[in-house]
Design a protein around this nucleic acid. Sequence first.
DNA 1: CCCCATTGTTGTCATTGACAACTTGTCGGG
DNA 2: CCCGACAAGTTGTCAATGACAACAATGGGG
Lengths: 200, 200
Amino acid sequence: MLGGMADRPYHHGDLRAALIANAERALAERGPSALSLRELAREAGVSHAAPGRHFKDKQALLDALALTGFDRLTGRLEDALAAVGEDGVRTRVLALARTYVGFAIDNAALLDLMYARKHDPRSSAQLSAAMERLLDTVVRPIVDGQSDGEIAGGDPWPVAMTVSAALHGFATLKAAAPPEKVEESLAEVVRVLFEGLAPR
Amino acid sequence: MLGGMADRPYHHGDLRAALIANAERALAERGPSALSLRELAREAGVSHAAPGRHFKDKQALLDALALTGFDRLTGRLEDALAAVGEDGVRTRVLALARTYVGFAIDNAALLDLMYARKHDPRSSAQLSAAMERLLDTVVRPIVDGQSDGEIAGGDPWPVAMTVSAALHGFATLKAAAPPEKVEESLAEVVRVLFEGLAPR
DNA sequence: CCCCATTGTTGTCATTGACAACTTGTCGGG
DNA sequence: CCCGACAAGTTGTCAATGACAACAATGGGG
């Protein structure tokens, strides 16, 4: 009963969410190497071992962070698709491209984390599932475009894979470029994708 | 003159190279989080502070590692191009694709490291330069193909960017897939790139 | 109303990265 | 040839960290 009566309640309320939110901020602001469970605990105003109740491991925290990343990215892509409506495949692919690359620029470190965790065989099945949902979001407009005859038919998966790969690769390669350059070359990439490399 | 006379010389000979080599092995075998300067020092048979003479910091070691990665990848791509000779652009692009993806599969963790370090503004100019050399290696066949009329003309950079992006993205997305699946869908990706998405 | 699962806490340990101060080996100019 | 400067390695130390164990507060359901 000394002066040390903490005004904070003994229970945080939603420590788990707070930790993830702080982790994401720290990741964006100071890079992945600056992520420390103890520091996150301090920021959340809890003791150094409290995070252990919510995440077995540092890795578990990172996995959870990656998972929120996948979910948010998928959500944004779906919102973008909804926003452009039924304006044709190319418009929709361009919308996907802008959104994906925008996310990559705003969340470069998070995106790195997402894919780094995905590579690790020890990573949870949840991550693979989230990744699949992400790919599905890209496949759907492709399939729609094929059935409308707007793009060439055939197995949609290689096509979707090519588009996804180009988007992800572009985002990775261009993440540090000036924004207007990005928009410009992004449009060019979509054009090349649609017209192909062959002369006509 | 007790039995403890270490048979190894006081000077290692080429500690720097040994550290990088061990680091790469450890990275591939046990993931990036298992990389410890002290453990690398132990493996090399030197004291825990010896690495400090060659790398200011852990980050410096990682940068050096990334640099060797870029150099080796660029070298392999050039070798692959040399091996296919003058067989046409599509053949050359396919060779690049196979080589790039092969490298990505065999060195997934290293490739992650390479691009993660590239994102960091604190990373050395050497890394950017290495990255540029890598891109140049992809651009050259494109330019050649354009001047031969084998692929559509125009600014070669968006074209090269699209190809590079597709390759890198594909490598990232497919790094964990079974090899024959990879070869198959890789061929499809190159086909889509050449023919484009538009119906014909 | 009290039991006990959940969430947090304190304490501790080995490992790590960084740095400082010192030693050993090598090599080139006088 | 030797001697001094510089490169490369060494020991010692420190604060920070992740993991774990043992203990304490909280509060909801039997």
